[in-house]
Every structure is written in C-alpha cells, then in structure tokens.
Computed example of a mutant assay.
Amino acid sequence: MRLKSIIAGAVISVMVSGVVAFAGPVWDKIQKSKTLRAGIMNNSIPGAYYNDKKEWVGFDVDMAKEIAKRLGLKLEQVLVTDKTRIGFLQQGRIDMSIANMTHKRERDKSIDFSITYFFDGQKMLTRKGKYADWNALVGKTIATVQGTTSEINVKTLMKKMGGAEIVSYQDYPSAFNALQMGRVQAFSTDSTILLGYAAQEPGKYELVGDFFSREPYGIGLPQDESQLRDAVNFALQDMWKDGTYMAIYNKWYGERTPYYFPMTEQIEMWP
C-alpha cells in the first residue's frame, strides 16, 4: 500500500513539475527576464519599417519602446507578419503584438487585446487622376493582402458595387508593386498604410473614396493574462494623459509628415 502511495506521489510530482516548467503566467516570466518581447512588422510604412539607414523605425516601434520603458523593461523587437502575429502570441514567442492589427471579435476568441491604440479605416489607392470613386473600379483588378481584414472588406464592398477581380498578395510591398507595374488598378488596405506607400513616389498616387470600414487597432496579448493587459492599458492611458502619445503620433502622422492623417478619436480613459 505504501509503495503504491509513493508511486502515485511521484507521478503527481512529475505532472506538477511539468506544468510549472512549461506554463506559468506570462507576466511572471516578463518580470523575471525584465524583457518585453514585442511582435512588430517591417513593411507597414510608417507604422513599422526599415529606413534608408536600415534602422527599424515607425509609430509602432516608438509605441513599443515607450510601453516597455514605462513598465521598467527592456524591449526585444521580434519580426512578425500578418500571418504570424497571432500564432507567435499563442506559441509564447512574443508577449505582445503591436502590428496594425484590427481588434475583431473573431480574433478575440484566441488572443486578448488592449484598448484601441490607433484608429484607422480602409480605402483604395490608385494612380492620381485615374479614378474618381469606387464605382469607377467596378470590373477592374484590385490588390490586397492575404490573411487581413482588408481582404474580406474589399471583397464584400466590390461584390455589392457590381464586382471586381480581387488579387491577394503575400505582403504590402508586393501589392503596391502590382499597382506600380500596372497589373492592378487599385491597392486596398488600411489608409495609413496606403499613405506610407504612396509617399514613396510623391504625386503619383491618391486615395479614392471615403472609408468603407472602421479599423480600430489593438495591441494583441496572450489569452487570459490580466496583469499584462492591465499594465499595457495603463501605460497607453498614461501616455495619452501626459501628451506622450500625441507627440509620437505627430512625429509619424502630423501635418509636417508625408503621412498626414488627422487624429479623429481619443483613447479610452479610465477614472
């Protein structure tokens, strides 16, 4: 009887030790390592990209740095794409994803989100003076990016308008290149991303029509990690309150930038 108890105890001990080794709250791991691993993109101009000096810069980069600073942590930037950002969170390869990700209820089933930290919407980018509105793009070919809400939105819109051929590319540079080469007549995604690519060739491209979607960006976070979520939310709200947020925003989207995008809403503030 005693032998069975010892064996049973050993099995339980192994199981518990296994859980401890591979699980544990993400917040505790962050506090132990003193490092915040942020998933950031590198082709989302001016959200996050490599400049002429090969430096990783952009609005999301500066936001991630400021959040880490306020949490007293070292920032580790991890490259993610539209296709990998959620998977990296689920696999524990990053602690947060600050990568122009629209907060959708469907996505909230597998990861958590911060409060909205950026407000965008979807538009069409075309050759300047070529198309007056969405109606002019009926029957044309439009580029978008695979695995994004933009892909779904533009397909839905053009189906209602009368139809168009939607070609989904692997990333933003490929979709913009298709527009440059004349393989498509428009490129559709979030307007600030379109502004970033249009600025590469000033005067050649323009945004057509109004917003046809609302894209509230949230910082993706691991599921059920309330301490981390609260810490990020408090940092965002404090940044808004003391003016740091708008300083970063104006650096990348202000009137004196090639990516001018007026701020229309404000961050949710808790008393």
Rank of each mutant, 00 (worst) to 15 (best):
A175D: 03
N177M: 12
D171N: 15
I166Y: 07
T192R: 13
E165S: 10
Q170K: 13
T189L: 15
Q180W: 01
E165I: 10
F187S: 05
G182P: 06
S188W: 12
L195N: 08
R183C: 09
L179V: 06
S191T: 12
L195Q: 11
E201P: 00
I166E: 07
V167G: 02
A175K: 00
S174R: 10
D190N: 15
L179C: 03
S188D: 15
F176W: 03
F187L: 11
E165Q: 10
D190S: 15
N177G: 07
P173A: 10
G196R: 00
V184Y: 00
S174V: 01
G203Y: 01
R183E: 13
G196N: 04
L179M: 06
T192A: 13
Y172N: 15
M181V: 13
I166T: 05
S191Y: 12
L179D: 03
I193S: 15
Y197M: 01
V167I: 12
D171R: 05
E201W: 05
T192E: 06
G196L: 02
Y172C: 00
N177I: 04
D171K: 05
F176S: 00
S191C: 12
A199K: 00
Q170D: 14
A199M: 01
A198H: 07
F176L: 00
Q180L: 10
A198I: 04
D190H: 13
A178L: 06
Y197T: 03
E165T: 11
A186C: 12
P173G: 11
Q170C: 01
G182H: 12
L195S: 07
F187D: 07
L179E: 04
Q185R: 08
S168H: 06
T189D: 15
L194G: 07
G182V: 14
A175S: 07
T189K: 05
A178D: 06
A175L: 01
Q200L: 10
F176T: 00
L194K: 06
P173T: 02
P173E: 10
F176D: 01
P202I: 01
I166P: 06
D190Y: 10
N177Q: 12
